[in-house]
Computed example of a mutant assay.
Amino acid sequence: MPRGPKGEKRPADVIGNAVHVMRIATGEVDEAAPVDDGKDPAAKALGKKGGAARAASMTPERRAEIAKAAAAKRWGKT
């Protein structure tokens, strides 16, 4: 199923998409409603901070090691 820019589900067929656009235009469906991903906003903010701090404290060699291991894991599947 296609997804919109905020991760919301969109109709896959042309007619269903046209009906969805019509409902947005007439106000039946609110397009600007935020999508609840089920995660705590405070935890998401801390996670972003932690990832940036970890990347800043790592040496370029260590980042390369981690990237190589991730690529090997990703592409090594059969």
Rank of each mutant, 00 (worst) to 15 (best):
E31T: 10
R54A: 15
K44T: 02
V21Q: 09
R54M: 15
A12G: 13
R74A: 12
K68M: 05
R62A: 13
V35G: 04
E65W: 00
G7A: 02
K6S: 12
K68A: 07
S57H: 12
A32M: 12
P41E: 01
D40L: 00
A42E: 10
T78S: 10
G76H: 01
R62E: 14
R74W: 04
P34C: 02
R74I: 07
A69L: 09
A70M: 12
D40N: 07
T26H: 04
A70N: 08
I66F: 01
A32K: 15
V21H: 01
A25V: 13
I66A: 01
P60S: 06
D30P: 02
E61C: 07
G51I: 11
K6V: 07
P5C: 07
A32L: 14
I24A: 15
V14Y: 10
K9G: 09
D40R: 02
A71P: 00
E61P: 03
K73A: 11
A67I: 08
T59I: 05
A32D: 15
M1F: 11
V19G: 00
R62N: 10
A18R: 14
R74G: 06
K9D: 09
K6Y: 07
A71S: 14
W75T: 13
A70D: 12
P60V: 00
M58C: 10
G16H: 03
P5Q: 10
K48G: 05
R63F: 02
G38W: 02
S57M: 15
G47T: 01
W75Y: 14
D30W: 08
I66V: 07
A64G: 02
A42V: 12
K77H: 05
S57E: 06
V19Y: 01
D37Q: 06
V29M: 09
A56E: 05
K39H: 12
P5D: 09
A71M: 10
T26S: 05
A52S: 14
E8F: 04
K49I: 08
V19A: 09
E61H: 09
R23E: 12
D37W: 06
M22P: 03
R3A: 09
A45C: 01
M1Q: 10
N17T: 15
A43V: 04
I66G: 00
V35W: 08
R10W: 13
M22D: 11
K68R: 05
A64S: 05
K49C: 05
A53P: 00
G38S: 08
V21W: 04
I66N: 01
A71V: 12
P2W: 03
R54H: 13
T78N: 08
P5A: 07
K49E: 08
K48R: 09
E65A: 03
G7V: 06
I24D: 14
D36M: 08
R74Y: 06
K44L: 04
A69Y: 01
R74C: 03
K48N: 11
K39T: 13
A18Y: 11
P5F: 06
E28L: 13
